[in-house]
């Protein structure tokens, strides 16, 4: 670890933090994936988690996932709320018996010393109504700040997890603020350099936060979005139906493309919700519609190559 040059150190470089976590979990044996190429609300939506958590096959993966939460946009003015941020996601199936220790060592790797800091596992049961998923676990506190989510998945896409996967989600910006000792995400040092070479988080993302907040709250084309929701929902159902290999419905060949449409519908719904065009009662029914898609995708996945028993 001494070999790490200063600009790569997690306590002064945002990208250094990401690379350190990747390195740590790669050393453990995870496949290090790249972000999924679609808009998602959280790292959990990546098929590497949602779908791969299902079925009996061993699966260890880690990746960064940009996450979009249109409603959380604050035009870049709130110190710690953004409509676009990064999550670092680890998924281990089956959950290893020393998962807590592995997690604590990952904190040590990024410079959080458990002899100096108060690390706590505080009850936090996780549930995603749109994904038809739930699990038990904790939010992990470091000196009173939530730095990660730790969940043992019990059910995903309406399917029981057998075996159970352990999921770790690091909120990277918040963790970096803590490590770098800054109070505003926009003030993070992204590349760990000094002086002219230094690139701040705000230089990369402030304009984006402003523009997307404007878009999400004021200008997003709602007529188009309503259409897109319907189209994605229709396409998802069609691919699910057409994907069965035979009439015995034992093998599915299009679970992944169908799931993409489910993700699409979910994000479109989030945008409509941010635009405030969905009433309280309708809201529930949209969530149910996405959940139905997710469940149907889960059902297809456990009949697909990577989700099946053999």
């Amino acid at each position: 670890m001494d070999a790490i040059p200063p600009h790569m150190r997690p306590e002064r470089s945002f990208q250094g933090l990401i690379l350190t976590l990747q390195r740590y979990w790669a050393d453990y044996g995870c496949v290090i994936l790249q972000p999924y190429d679609m808009e998602v609300g959280a790292g959990t939506f990546h098929p590497a988690t949602t779908l791969r958590a299902l079925g009996p096959k061993r699966w260890n993966a880690a990746y960064v996932q940009p996450s979009r939460r249109p409603k959380d946009g604050r035009y870049g003015e709130n110190p710690n709320r953004l409509q676009h941020y990064y999550q670092f996601q680890v998924i281990l199936k089956p959950s290893p018996s020393d998962l807590q220790e592995l997690y604590l060592k990952s904190l040590a790797a990024i410079g959080i010393d458990s002899a100096l800091h108060d690390i706590r596992f505080v009850e936090d049961d996780w549930e995603s109504p749109t994904l038809g998923a739930w699990g038990l676990g904790w939010e992990c506190w470091c000196d009173g700040m939530e730095v990660s989510q730790f969940t043992y998945f019990q059910q995903v896409a309406g399917v029981e997890c057998a075996p159970v996967a352990g999921e770790l989600t690091y909120g990277l910006e918040r963790l970096a603020c803590y490590l770098q000792g800054v109070d505003r995400i926009m003030d993070l040092n992204f590349n760990g350099r000094d002086g002219d070479e230094k690139v701040l988080y705000s230089e990369i993302f402030l304009q984006a936060e402003q523009e997307y907040s404007r878009h999400n709250f004021e200008y997003a084309d709602t007529a188009m979005l309503f259409d897109q929701f319907r189209m994605a929902e229709g396409a998802c159902r069609k691919y699910l139906e057409d994907g069965w290999k035979g009439s015995d419905r034992k093998e599915h060949l299009m679970a992944l493309p169908a799931y993409d449409q489910c993700i699409k519908a979910s994000h479109v719904f989030n945008l409509l919700d941010a635009r405030g065009v969905i009433s309280v009662t309708e809201r529930q029914s949209y969530i149910m519609r996405v959940r139905e898609l997710a469940k149907a995708c889960g059902e297809a996945w456990v009949h697909a190559e990577a989700g099946r028993a053999s």
């Binding site: 009996p56 959950s95 018996s97 038990l136 057998a162 352990g166």
Partner: peptide, 12 residues
């Protein structure tokens, strides 16, 4: 009030 499964054995 709420309980869970975990690890290798949770598949069975």
């Amino acid at each position: 009030p709420k309980s869970m499964r975990w690890g290798e054995r949770s598949g069975k």
